[in-house]
Design a protein around this nucleic acid. Structure first.
Lengths: 126, 126
DNA sequence: CCCGTACTACGATGCCTATCGTACGAGTCG
DNA sequence: CGACTCGTACGATAGGCATCGTAGTACGGG
């Protein structure tokens, strides 16, 4: 019917900036991979920070006690295991938890993990 | 009230057999360690089998596609990370999940993990 | 006491990975 | 354009680890 030749303006705009990053689709996410990704203290810390704000954070918003190369490595592991989604926006790379996919695959797991990490942090601090 | 001199027959007999194995106490259990232990497919499988029956299983009750040396290694990783408790009984080594300790430290985590593993198994099977 | 069973110890091997440093590509802003 | 920032790629390195095979120890039964 009307408007036969629209150019698909911005409904989930297909190109974000320029380069895309490879993500596993939901069904490719493996529990073992998620657990392995979160078994590293640095990555668990990243995920915890990512969980407090519901928005997205750029890689440089994190102040990790490792070099930038290593930071890049950890974010890649998290992305390839399906824990986070990464998107370029300008020069920054925005990171967000894949809550929807993880909750669909493993209901309650992410919350239980975040709660467990929080409890352990409290125990260490007090 | 007869029988004044019973020899403490079986009320949680203090010495199980002879050798003890080193276990972390509850507060030494680290979330990262637990996740690392469970991120191995073989160990996740062991824990899943251990969870179905509420009792204990000996190492040889498991039929894993690895040698016995490797099996020993996996059980040790699980024990040292605090996921299972191991006790010698005669020549057999009995294994049991540390449900109480894990539930106390990380409420809901173990159940969420087992549920996640079960869902993934169903998805793979269907 | 000897044998079989259950598990361990030890060494080897090959792979994975956390970390770094340096050099580079991609955008943004002046 | 030029400079600056953000992040990547690549190589190196050191340590961890899953796996094996063989040899050995502990326990229980005939």
């Amino acid at each position: 019917m009307g408007v036969p030749k629209e150019v698909e303006p911005a409904v989930t705009s297909p190109v974000v900036s320029s380069r895309d990053l490879p993500h596993p689709v939901r069904d490719e996410i493996r529990l073992e991979g998620v657990l392995h990704a979160l078994s590293d203290p640095m990555r668990l810390r990243i995920v915890r920070e990512l969980a407090v704000g519901s928005g997205e954070l750029s890689c440089s918003d994190f102040e990790l006690p490792v070099t930038k190369s290593t930071t890049t490595h950890h974010f890649r592991v998290l992305r390839e295991s399906g824990v986070i989604r990464q998107v370029y926006r300008g020069t920054a790379k925005m990171n967000g938890l894949r809550r929807d996919d993880l909750d669909e695959l493993f209901p309650g797991l992410l919350d239980a993990l975040l709660d467990a990490a929080a409890r352990q942090a409290v125990r260490a601090g007090g």
